[in-house]
């Protein structure tokens, strides 16, 4: 499979009046089509920094990010960031409105997504009437509305309780597979990283560089719960835990 995104020697320095902080010292990775990559690492190691740079909301200090012009990013944050003065449908159309792409076809696509993922009845409701899991799904549809090729997920399920977290992460994975998207997810939850991804990248503590890359070898048809029961899962878990632990 072809790489759709080549990140090479990415480096980021934060500047404040008092000091400068090297957050990311060296990060390189080639993302393939339809690949789901998770980035894990000790807290504060600059995981989110990498996503912010990719999304364009933060400037890199050094390194290169190569992709075809046609490849676009969709960014999903920890907080669902739904606007409470807009209905669910209006929230989903936000990106299209901003980019002046609110055509009839695109609108129908968004409505079809809402329908597919069980939110059509709530189209005209306001976010305050939805549960946390539903809101997160709306945020995902808002991201998908612009038909991005690569999704950047920054601890997307962090705000959810354990039950909905399992449910929504499964939902999101299903949606991404169905829509054939690549994704890079930052998380501190190893279980989540292991059950959702094809590849797990382990970062060192700050200044972060890649400590290890695990290509996960699970049967694609296993559900998250079934994956957790395999021996391989436990092995990966222990390996990654050791990688992270040695840095704390």
């Amino acid at each position: 499979m072809n790489s759709i995104l080549k990140i090479k020697n990415l480096k980021k320095i934060y500047h404040t009046k008092k000091s400068e902080t090297l957050a990311v010292s060296d990060f390189s990775y080639n993302l393939k089509e339809n690949e789901f990559v998770s980035i894990v690492g000790p807290s504060g190691c600059g995981k989110s920094t990498i996503l912010s740079i990719l999304s364009g909301s933060l400037e890199k200090s050094e390194g290169s990010i190569a992709k075809k012009d046609s490849i676009t990013f969709g960014y999903m944050l920890q907080d669902d960031c739904l606007f409470d003065f807009r209905t669910i449908l209006e929230n989903c159309l936000l990106g299209l409105e901003i980019n002046r792409k609110c055509t009839k076809e695109n609108k129908e696509y968004v409505i079809s997504l809402l329908e597919k993922y069980g939110l059509k009845d709530f189209m005209d409701s306001y976010p305050k009437n939805l549960s946390g899991g539903m809101r997160q799904r709306v945020a995902l549809i808002r991201t998908l509305a612009l038909k991005p090729d690569i999704l950047l997920l920054d601890e997307p399920f962090c705000a959810l309780d354990y039950q909905s977290r399992l449910k929504v992460s499964e939902d999101v994975l299903k949606i991404l597979r169905m829509e054939k998207k690549s994704a890079i997810m930052v998380t501190h939850n190893l279980e989540e990283a292991l059950t959702m991804s094809d590849t797990v990248i382990v970062l060192s503590s700050r200044p972060s560089h890649i400590k290890n890359i695990y290509k996960l070898d699970f049967d694609k048809n296993l559900s998250a719960l079934e994956k957790k029961k395999t021996d391989a899962f436990l092995d990966y878990y222990n390996l990654i835990w050791k990688d992270i632990d040695s840095h704390v």
Partner: peptide, 10 residues
């Protein structure tokens, strides 16, 4: 975060 979201959406 909402401002950031708007920026990311272009």
């Amino acid at each position: 975060n909402k401002v950031k979201l708007m920026q990311v959406l272009g």
